[in-house]
Design a binder for these strands. Structure first.
Lengths: 151, 151
DNA sequence: CTACGTGCAAATCATTTGCACGTAA
DNA sequence: TTACGTGCAAATGATTTGCACGTAG
């Protein structure tokens, strides 16, 4: 289950950070969103509530949250242009970007967790975070290609 | 097995691209390297052979090679700062970056392939490329933490 | 009160691009 | 010959940072 706002604010206090309106606002925004959002998207949402919030603060706050484990941060698209964030410990999400239609397909699976476990067993390492991005064809495009004999 | 220089040059010709000294040089450099290298590293190696090669050409050439399938390109570190390249179809390689000592551990495994196959079966999609980066503790740091009771 | 947080604008860093010149075919 | 490739320097785009002001505790 996902982190609560209270839990997150406690974490901030425990580490000697202040609770500011900006930090609370970002927590509220993240709590209302299951999906990964990039800094710009989060900035836009924040801007709706409080036009004075700056993009720099959004970046600083997200980085702080990531350090404290309040948010997960990853790259989900193959271009790896923008980093994305969400409250920690939601269900695993990966994306496949379709090279034919450009669609981004959400993939729910615990495959990456299983992969991490295998690494632990075989290599003696400890995996604390992982990120995977897939490129390929979405189900519809795969079907179309198959039907038209292009596959 | 890895692409040969001849095969790569044939691909270039087939697509109407010219064989230039710069393109040949980059192919030679990539052929002598099993590991993923970033554009800057490739540029440095190229510079040793021919001081006139520019970084812009390295980028343009690597992007062209990627388009033609001559090279694989991915991000291997969790910071996703720089893209890395190698000749296509070498054995799968992933990296785990140790958050304690900073070491980058090479991981040989076909787990990502298996993951891709499961996705194909369960979702009807087609996976043509994948990228995974792991964060965690390397074997030594895991051992140390375990010994000192910090884990 | 004062150390920490913020907004703003400028800096950074990987990568891309416009342009005039060079060269493979 | 001539369209394509290159080097150079400037542009881009995401993210970070220096600084002076503002505010949580």
């Amino acid at each position: 289950m996902t982190l609560t706002i209270d839990k997150a604010e406690t974490l901030l206090r425990e580490h000697g950070y202040k609770i500011t309106p900006q930090r609370t606002l970002l927590l509220q925004i993240m709590a209302g969103q299951a999906a990964y959002l990039d800094a710009e998207e989060i900035f836009q949402l924040a801007h709706l509530q409080d036009a004075s919030v700056s993009l720099a603060t959004v970046y600083r706050t997200l980085n702080l949250f990531a350090e404290l484990g309040i948010v997960d941060h990853r790259y989900v698209s193959p271009e790896h242009r923008r980093e994305v964030f969400r409250l920690s410990a939601g269900p695993e999400q990966h994306y496949l970007t379709c090279v034919r239609c450009g669609k981004r397909v959400l993939i729910h699976t615990d495959l990456l967790n299983r992969m991490a476990h295998e690494l632990v067993r075989h290599k003696g390492v400890m995996v604390t975070g992982a990120c995977a991005c897939f490129t390929g064809y979405c189900a519809e495009c795969t079907e179309t290609l198959r039907r038209t004999g292009k596959l």
